[in-house]
Design a protein around this nucleic acid. Sequence first.
DNA 1: CGACGAATTGATCAAATTCAAGCGACGTGG
DNA 2: CCACGTCGCTTGAATTTGATCAATTCGTCG
Lengths: 239, 239
Amino acid sequence: MTPQTIRVACSNCNLRELCMPMGLSESDIGRLDDLVATRRKIKRGAALFSNGDRFNALYAIRTGFFKTCVATADGRDQVTGFQMAGEIIGLDGIVADRHSCDAVALEDAEVCVMPYDRIEELSREVPALQSHVHKIMSREIVREHGVMLLLGSMRAEERLAAFLLNLVQRLHARGFSQSELVLRMTREEIGSYLGLKLETVSRTFSKFAEEGIVEVKQRHVRILDTEALRAIVNAPACA
Amino acid sequence: MTPQTIRVACSNCNLRELCMPMGLSESDIGRLDDLVATRRKIKRGAALFSNGDRFNALYAIRTGFFKTCVATADGRDQVTGFQMAGEIIGLDGIVADRHSCDAVALEDAEVCVMPYDRIEELSREVPALQSHVHKIMSREIVREHGVMLLLGSMRAEERLAAFLLNLVQRLHARGFSQSELVLRMTREEIGSYLGLKLETVSRTFSKFAEEGIVEVKQRHVRILDTEALRAIVNAPACA
DNA sequence: CGACGAATTGATCAAATTCAAGCGACGTGG
DNA sequence: CCACGTCGCTTGAATTTGATCAATTCGTCG
């Protein structure tokens, strides 16, 4: 099997359960294979798409790790999310036919390119796909509600605890450890996502480490006390 | 024409251009009329839906003003948005078949109830509707990106300025003044949305008033210097 | 091995929160 | 129609949190 003959097919992709609808008939699954036009590799630090780019496809992440961010006129920017294998990015582009944020690979990555017109066409014919697309968008809306809650009403420790729990939970769903993780992003990027400065992120990591909740060695994090993190997130303000 | 005979029809609704797709054929418009099953009145302070409620419809606001909010386990809550006539609420419910936030009327309101299964069905047959639904969801995602930027990287004055500009712009699109508005929400609700305490909101209003940027009398706000507000939003941190 | 980017840590500072008091508008019931 | 009570808003003073400025240290990669 030479590279040329590799069939780009959802039907035998091990990530299918993450990005595709479940419980399809055999024939529908076959049709879904046509959704993915090509794959695309993105080098670490490169953008999959940028603010202002014409929108024409959604992307399913096969491997690698992304951040998405928006920027103000005056140069400040805000990380709006971190995305990993099996997640879909590009939804921001639908409304105005142009992307309104940047998607940057935090490590070498590969995505499945799903041309949007094909998604619309196919989801008219396959109700399960239609429903799935709606759910993906709704999920993103709900996720962002959670981030708003975090940014609007949590203190630094709560934000970082919530961030770690969320990351490790998503990694666990992909077969990784529940207690150990390697951060793909810098302190500054974490800070941007959490509405904190990088120094605050670093200090809060150190504080957690002192308290024996985590072990931190640069980007390697081992969670020693998940319950403590949960307690921090749900704490009624006072510790 | 007795009340019973009032036809609930999008085709002769003056808000149509806000909540329905444009450029439809006559026959498609006729089909869209079937989308709205009923209308529903909500008293000020009452919930259109609440966290945990079964999801079965999206709602187009006909009259009135809503807030949506999410809550933490420990009682804090976060306003995730304010919605006015012509806007669609309920998208959060699609992903899990249950609503994950509360929608509360800030004044007596009326909504068009659009059963979700009918939306899915009809949007399979009317591409313009399908596209419109996708755009509405994408727009909400992009709006929330903006809120994340606001919450994550703006100071109090910038947040309030951005909030006022956004409100007045949306009101203007509905035929209201560009410079005068009546707030439908309390300082506390504004604060929750902006990630600030009500005292900070009040102080910031006072500051703007002192500087001659706005005139504030309780919930009546008159914007005297729109450019100053814009400058505050785009200010590179230092004033 | 050296250099650069990333992370940690300390000291100081500013912004927003908290606590507290008082005012004003509005609605209800006498 | 007015008195009263409630809720929302404003303003002040003290406190807290996280930001800023600055100096090292750590790691990785030419």
